[in-house]
Design a protein around this nucleic acid. Structure first.
Lengths: 352, 352
DNA sequence: TTGTACGCGTTATCAT
DNA sequence: ATGATAACGCGTACAA
């Protein structure tokens, strides 16, 4: 364990506002005015001050500023697991918006364990974050809020939170159903459908939309429950294959990867024999074989919206919940065109 | 644009150290001593103070503390792109170590553009980070360092940096070569080999190890250059298929996904006709079809090591560079066992 | 063991 | 347009 109390060379102290004031022959108040574009300063003295500052390579200390302003310009961020690609995309959206406002995100990970969530939140509060954002919170409104504005939630699981960004999961289910019911190239409609879900509200809502759309066509469907893992998708797929099957909607892309694998092992062709639609449009979707058609969550935009909410919260503005609409991304697992052309959307994920 | 100057209700001020001192009938110095385990305080007064603090729900303001200590307890983090799974894993490692020391990571993304890297660094410095970590820096030693200890690099591209964590890429190339040269189940050794690389030092080192190991067996190899994208892997694969081919080493998992796709399209069986080894063991590797054998970067450990370096740097300790060794992860793309059993390693990626 | 008093670097108010 | 000065909340020599 590193002993953080050790601090040999206390970082050569840079010149402060006082030094600049002395150098420029003015008071510290005027220097402050210049660096905050506040009040009025004559062009002449402004230049003298800027020159002196450059000479001493001075810049205002955020430590001092934060103290007197009572703000840290930090937004806490709690993520279940940073390496989940979908979350990564959300974080990008958050980061972009915050950076544009000279603010930064303080990262905290609850490591997929609900019980640590409050502890992580407390740790972030220890850094005096002005507000916070929680992705897929398990705790909900119970998070601590000392000296901060509040937590914005990106999460479908806990309804009723005042500041939240969510996806219209039911609409996602409808989109999936419509895609699977499109006439196949052979002209024969699909009739043996299935849903692979998972525990939780999120999956239930997706299923509700899926079921509603099927009902319109007078169709029923088989139902299996997994846990969003690939393994559970594989098991679900093997189970479904004991019965007739020509279309599957899976509540997550990772789990859909497992379903696809089950189909490969049983020798079924996708999409001609069985069509598959996933959910999320995580970056693995276009890498699967065949490329997975899926319901896209606009993760980047959802992150950006949450960040904007946090900023509004800090500014004391009114904030209302937002619901985003999913979009269906058609790829090879539902589209039987033999040699699909490459579009910029596919394949060109980020390098590495 | 939100106007951050708006700040209606300045967050009801919590009781400060003064209030606690008054309530407990002691001086603020004694309160401070209690909360910092410094000096000596009688058991009696300590309890009185703790009680008063609890009563007023007081906790020390990090803003004030940071100012007087001249530290922010923040570590800046610059990542090319947060949604890259491999980076996500590194960040997890960083976060875990920092959190264990009451510190936090301030997130910055250079959005895959080298020119923004210095700007992002400057932004993090604006928050007075104590030190920083840069993943795959393009800028290297040129990053600004005002009032901070320095930047730890996780990066192979820029040698000579004093504080760095890197992977033994050459060893990775050797591992890949050995795996591809293993006798096949049919007993006939592979002789038509290829390397799919990319620009940059990293790929060159991997190739060097690969080539050296092949040379030991008296073998040569064909060579194609991509850019780590899936698309470039597909193109590379199609190009290689114009010649005899029974083994490919690809410098990145994403690009390997493209190579696999090219092999599918041409009807080759993997691994019986062509064996494939990727690089990184990014979380996509076990999701590809077939599951991809690959050279694993210990990303989590590399992140953790970098964080520890940053902590040591802050503590003023001596820091020396570290090199990590890769490990070969054998999966279906080199191992022709017909129905591979599921190991905890495979399939069970994080949920979602 | 406890208290006094100063400093940390800045912003903001009120004079001038 | 500019200056003097009081906060901001805390840590810490130094004194008691």
């Amino acid at each position: 364990m590193t002993d953080l109390t050790v601090q040999p060379k206390p970082l050569s102290r840079t010149g402060g506002i006082r030094d600049v004031a002395r150098q420029a022959g003015v008071s510290i108040a005027t220097v402050s005015r210049v660096f905050n574009d506040a009040g009025t300063v004559s062009q002449d003295t402004r230049e003298r001050i800027m020159h002196a500052a450059a000479l001493l390579s001075y810049e205002p200390s955020s430590l001092g500023r934060n103290l007197v302003r009572g703000r840290s310009y930090l937004v806490g961020l709690i993520v279940p697991n940073i390496s989940v690609p979908l979350y990564g995309t959300m974080i990008q959206g958050i980061e972009d918006v915050l950076a544009r406002h000279q603010m930064s995100a303080l990262l905290g990970s609850s490591r997929d364990r609900p019980d640590t969530e409050a502890r992580v939140a407390q740790g972030l509060l220890g850094h005096a974050v002005d507000a916070g954002i929680v992705i897929n919170s398990q705790v909900g409104a119970a998070l601590p809020v000392q000296r901060m504005r509040g937590w914005v939630h990106i999460s479908p699981e806990i309804p009723g939170l005042p500041w939240r960004v969510e996806l219209d999961n039911e609409e996602g289910g409808r989109l999936a159903a419509r895609e699977l019911l499109r006439n196949t190239s052979s002209g024969s409609p699909r009739t043996a459908l299935a849903y692979v879900g998972a525990p939780g509200r999120e999956s239930l809502e997706r299923e509700r939309g899926f079921a509603a759309e099927l009902a319109l066509a007078g169709l029923n469907y088989r139902r299996v429950v997994g846990d969003y893992s690939e393994q559970s998708g594989l098991e679900a797929g093997l189970e479904l294959l004991q019965f007739p099957l020509d279309a599957v909607f899976v509540a997550g892309d990772l789990m859909a990867a497992g379903v696809l694998r089950a189909l490969h092992r049983s020798g079924r062709n996708v999409p001609t024999q069985v069509a598959v639609v996933g959910f999320d449009d995580s970056l693995i979707a276009p890498l699967l074989y065949p490329r997975l058609s899926t319901v896209r969550q606009p993760a980047y935009q959802m992150g950006a919206a949450a960040a904007q909410m946090a900023l509004d919260l800090i500014a004391g503005l009114a904030v209302t919940p937002m619901t985003f609409s999913p979009v269906l991304v058609r790829r090879e697992s539902t589209d039987p065109s033999p040699e699909p052309p490459f579009t910029p959307d596919e394949g060109r994920s980020s390098s590495r």
